[in-house]
Amino acid sequence: MNNANVLMVDEKYQSYPEGIRDKLLSLRRLVIDVSKKIDLPAQVQETLNANEPSFVVDGGSPIRIDWKSQTPNQYAMYFQCKTKLVDTFKELYDDTFRFDDDKGIVFTVDDDIATRELAHCISLSLRYHQIKHLPLLGV
């Protein structure tokens, strides 16, 4: 990632309200930690997509995280809606997470995030093109 992109991403995180920033930075750390623990063809790159922090890797499906001022007590992790990802997450973790239709997982500021389950969702997204042909993404 070039220096200008790093600055833009860092500025985006700094633009969030402090409590939300901490929550989003925790999600960011989780994506990076998961990416280091699984076999990926390349390193995950962080960039801005639609002015939202986005994580992309060859062979994977992008992950975005964001907060919207219209819903100040919520933040979310978004996945490509044209994939089987969110439908699979609903099948696996409907009792664990709240979903925004087929777009992503929504958290409130008071949530205790099920980190192990979310890490699994992140792993599936980062490996999506390798596993998309498998029933239930190979789970």
Results as ranks from 00 to 15, higher is better:
Q70M: 08
D111Y: 06
I38G: 10
T115Q: 10
I122T: 13
Q130S: 14
D94E: 09
M1I: 07
I105M: 12
K132P: 07
L92T: 06
M8H: 08
W67F: 15
Q80K: 00
D95Q: 10
K132R: 14
T83A: 01
G60V: 04
C121S: 09
L40V: 01
L126Q: 10
G104K: 08
Q130E: 14
F97P: 00
T96V: 15
L40S: 03
R116F: 09
P62M: 00
K68C: 06
N2M: 04
L136F: 11
L25H: 09
G104W: 10
L136P: 02
E11A: 14
R28L: 05
R29E: 14
L48E: 05
Y75K: 07
K68I: 04
L118H: 02
H120N: 12
E117D: 12
R98Q: 13
H120G: 04
R116A: 15
L27Q: 05
K68T: 13
R28D: 06
N49Y: 10
D111I: 03
L134E: 12
C81K: 12
N3A: 15
I63T: 08
E52F: 00
S69W: 07
M8A: 15
L24Y: 09
D111G: 02
G60P: 07
E52I: 03
A114K: 12
Q14R: 15
G59I: 04
E46H: 06
R98F: 03
Q80L: 01
F97K: 00
D33F: 11
Y78E: 00
R21K: 15
K68Y: 11
Y16I: 07
N49M: 06
C121P: 07
I131P: 05
F89V: 11
E117G: 03
A50E: 02
R21D: 02
N3F: 09
R98V: 14
M8P: 00
N73P: 00
S125H: 07
R64K: 11
E91F: 09
N2W: 01
I113Q: 05
V139E: 14
Y75C: 06
D112T: 11
F97W: 00
F89E: 07
D87A: 15
I63Q: 10
Q74F: 07
D94R: 11
Y93W: 08
K12Y: 02
Q80N: 00
D22C: 08
G59L: 03
R64H: 00
V139C: 08
D112H: 00
T96Q: 06
L137W: 13
I38Y: 05
S35T: 08
A42K: 15
G19R: 10
K36V: 04
I105E: 10
D111W: 05
D58V: 11
